[in-house]
Design a protein around this nucleic acid. Structure first.
Length: 568
RNA sequence: GCGCUCAUAGCUCAGCCGGAUAGAGCAUCGGAUUUCUAAUCCGACGGUCGGAGGUUCGAGUCCUCCUGGGCGCGCCA
């Protein structure tokens, strides 16, 4: 089904053609309710090209524009805006259609893509911390949305499970490991032995040399070192799984850096052979002399000691994703500090002849109340596990206060949905590039653009249906007499206009903003329009609006990876 | 030094292809509940959109320069 926006845009385009005018932009939602529901700026755009009075052009368009049944007669306003106000009957009819549409009006993308989404990427032997929230939550939301839009999505967790830090870990394991501590809290013990080894290595050259040897042995496949490595990976993966379970994150594949390790020599050989890489100061490098911003920034793909680094790994990763996974699109949801690195990787991919669409999707940082990178009091990264536990705990406390009569199992369920939802929504509702200040009070507030506010709107709807105690059957006729009803219905119709915009520039916050406006429109409707106490046919009509609002809220939040409780 | 990025109300943040008088929430002040969750709603107050130029009929949005913050820049990832 076609959205109002698409329908009006098509009608305007037809009118332009009929009036002998060139194409000129689309139709947008009105910037202000005073100007109606939608607007076209075609006349203003054409005025420039044709050097003619925009209002005259608007008039010419209106003469051939037939919107009977859909809109009130369009008006020309201001400098030459054409304003459209939808007829209530048209909104009612569209809303009734949405009730019978599983996709809630959202069209599938015209061209289906095969998209590998690289997000999360925690490091083995290190705890997940706040720094992982944005990549994980953003990547997951984008995956859900792209998938809903009909793309074939492969979610890949590019785990940091290979690299020089394993020299430290293995040395520490052999010399400093406390088995009992490892049983109790594996990651904490791995971090401890890593840190202590690191300290010893900085002060003692002999340790430094021993660490290096352990790494070389690992890379050469020495059985003991390999099995230690394997065990640390397994322990870490278990830890990651716990976090992913709490966050409801699922991966299709988890190809760590180690997966690519045996492909690295061939990568370097190939690049040398094709002349893309060359030897410089004993290392194998790729220079980008023709790309001004990279001209002074060569990429090293084999160190002078013969070792490979993460650039080599990422080139191998590109190979795998394009050739084995057959991706035509790759989204890298990785922090901004790696911009230069990925520019190099993408430039190399281009030289190798890959035409896939690579997007490095960056994001800002999470700050503490002091406006500096969020840390614990002792200056450490805040462990993700602690943060999620605290979110649930705080949500639980609020629920206890507001609704103490709920059963224990309900409280557990609600606290989890509200707490985790609040953390995710707080992240996703803000523009991804800006740094944001982490605040429990704000994210768990029931007022404003927060998960609890949206969840509460859903809960109010469920409450109505519980009270009604009847099976919902969609009416075919909606009555939109009250302004609050029209406003709500129109918002519901606009879900389909909003969802696709998210992937244009990878901005889930556009969807979040929409859901907030929808919830707000619903609350206003809820205050103004009694549902169960109203007379038929109004009662059925209002129930239908509630039903649809509930479905859109649940689906919208689901696309952001957030669950809705039935009560709260 | 070069590159990327951010700067909008007292605070926290929206503002997608440039469109009309820049919007929310919090805070402050004032209203609304015999009512389906007041966990809400309605209203008031509050802004030279960091600064200066430029492009345009029109700039928070695009371009240039400047100021300030964050991040990155040859063998860590």
């Amino acid at each position: 089904m076609e959205t109002f926006q698409a329908l009006l845009a098509r009608k305007v385009a037809e009118a332009l053609k009929a009036a002998g005018l060139p194409e000129a932009g689309g139709v947008t939602q009105a910037t202000d309710a005073r100007f109606g529901d939608y607007q076209s700026n075609a006349a203003l755009i054409l005025a420039k090209q044709l050097s003619e009075n925009p209002r005259n052009i608007a008039q010419k368009i209106l003469v051939v524009l037939d919107l009977s049944g859909l809109c009130e007669p369009p008006t020309i306003a201001g400098a030459g805006f054409i304003n459209f106000t939808l007829r209530n009957e048209a909104i009612a009819a569209q809303t009734a259609k949405l009730l019978r549409d599983e996709r809630l009006g959202v069209a599938r993308a015209e061209t289906q893509k095969r998209i590998v989404i690289d997000f999360g990427s925690p490091n083995v032997a290190k705890p997940m911390h706040v720094g992982h929230i944005r990549s994980t939550v953003l990547g997951d939301a984008l995956a859900r949305i792209a998938s809903f839009l009909g793309h074939e999505v492969i979610r890949d967790n590019h785990i940091g499970d290979w690299g020089t830090q394993f020299g430290m870990v293995i040395y520490g394991w052999k010399n400093l490991l406390d088995r009992a501590a490892l049983e109790r809290d594996p990651i904490a013990e791995l971090v401890r032995i890593y840190k202590e080894t690191n300290e010893k290595a900085t002060s003692d050259p002999k340790v430094r040399e021993a660490v290096r040897e352990e790494l070389v042995k690992l890379q050469a496949g020495a059985p003991e070192n390999f099995s230690i490595w394997k065990e640390t990976v397994d322990l870490s993966m278990k830890e990651f799984e716990r976090a992913y379970q709490m966050l409801d994150i699922h991966y299709d594949i988890q190809r760590g850096e180690s997966f690519y390790s045996d492909r690295l020599p061939a990568v370097v050989e190939r690049l040398l052979k094709s002349g893309i890489a060359e030897i410089s100061e004993g290392a194998v490098c790729v220079f980008f002399r023709d790309i001004p911003e990279l001209a002074e920034k060569p990429a090293i793909i084999r160190k002078s000691d013969g070792g490979f680094n993460y650039t080599t790994t990422d080139i191998a990763t590109v190979d795998y994703r394009i050739q084995d996974l057959k991706a035509d699109t790759v989204w890298l949801v990785v922090g901004a500090p790696q911009i230069l690195h990925f520019k190099q990787i993408i430039a190399i991919a281009r030289r190798e002849g890959y035409t896939a669409d690579f997007r490095h999707i960056t994001f800002g940082s999470i700050l503490g109340e002091d406006r500096k990178l969020m840390k614990t009091r002792s200056g450490e990264n805040v462990p993700l596990r602690d943060l999620l536990d605290e979110a649930i705990q705080r949500a639980r406390k609020i629920i206890e206060e507001k609704n103490p009569d709920l059963s224990e199992s309900e409280k557990i369920d609600i606290a989890e949905k509200v707490g985790i939802g609040a953390v995710k929504y707080y992240d996703l509702s803000q523009y991804r590039m800006t740094d944001y200040i982490f605040s429990w009070d704000r994210m768990l507030s029931f007022q404003g653009n927060t998960a609890p506010y949206l969840q509460n709107a859903y809960v109010r709807i469920r409450s109505i249906f519980r009270k009604a105690g009847e099976e919902f059957t969609a009416t075919r006729e909606l009555n939109l007499t009250d302004a609050a009803e029209k406003n709500l219905a129109l918002k519901l119709c606009q879900f389909a206009e909003t969802v696709p915009t998210v992937v244009n520039d990878f901005r889930p916050n556009l969807l979040a903003n929409y859901l907030y406006e929808l919830a707000n429109a619903f609350h206003t409707f809820y205050e103004a329009c009694p549902v169960l106490k109203s007379e038929e046919p109004l009662r059925s009509s209002r129930l239908a609006l509630c039903e649809l609002t509930g479905r859109v809220l649940a689906k919208g939040l689901d696309l952001l990876g957030i669950k809705v409780p039935e009560k709260m």
